[in-house]
Amino acid sequence: MKIELNSEDELDAYIICHKCHTLNREVLIENGSKALCCSQCGIVLYHHDNGFLDRGLALSISGLIFFIIANVFPLVQINILGSESFISILSMIDSLIASGYYLVGLFIIYLIFIFPLMIFLLYFFIFYLMKRGTREILVGNLLILLARIIPWHMSDIFLISILVAIVKLLGIADIHLGVSFWALIIFVLIDIYFTRNIHLRELWMLRKQVYQLSEEEAPHVLG
């Protein structure tokens, strides 16, 4: 198939599906709907959502709040034969490092603490700067950083691991779930919403749209 272009920027109208690598052309769809790839792979290619920016900003702030709660309070508390102990995310890493497992401790601190925190901070700054319509180049750099970190965060997998660990302890200990556990569940749900509904490509397209608009508006403001 031959494609005629006036400039390379017109390629923005095309999408290569990241699952089956077919080439698709973006068409205008209704607000609130989404476009799927071929019937075989059924992956969402893009959404049309007018409230994208505001919802993203609001959710990234709530994600950060729940992340802080999840890290400050105890996750799980157990009681075996009268002696009690509890863990929080940070105390767990601390005890791993204290018992000599530096490498595992280091991995875990990155995968479930530093990267998730960075991702939500990045989402927050990206949405905030685009909302204000300033710092186009910075937003681009933040988006590149975001793309590099996203494959490395594992909060959802950590949540499943907590459940597995709890089931393993069910027979031998009394278990109380802490505030952090519920906060972590909400954090992971927000995180899943983000990965399902906010594609990097859409953020780049939003960036293009936002800064083109503000460039066109600028003379009016001055004049």
């Binding site: 157990i78 075996i80 105390s91 767990m92 997998i157 691991s161 660990a165 302890l169």
Partner: peptide, 17 residues
């Protein structure tokens, strides 16, 4: 990574006399 996380959680949690 599930198993590594589980071990991490259990090691942090079960630390009794």
């Amino acid at each position: 990574m599930v198993d590594v996380f589980v071990v991490g959680i259990l090691a942090g949690l079960v630390h009794l006399s």
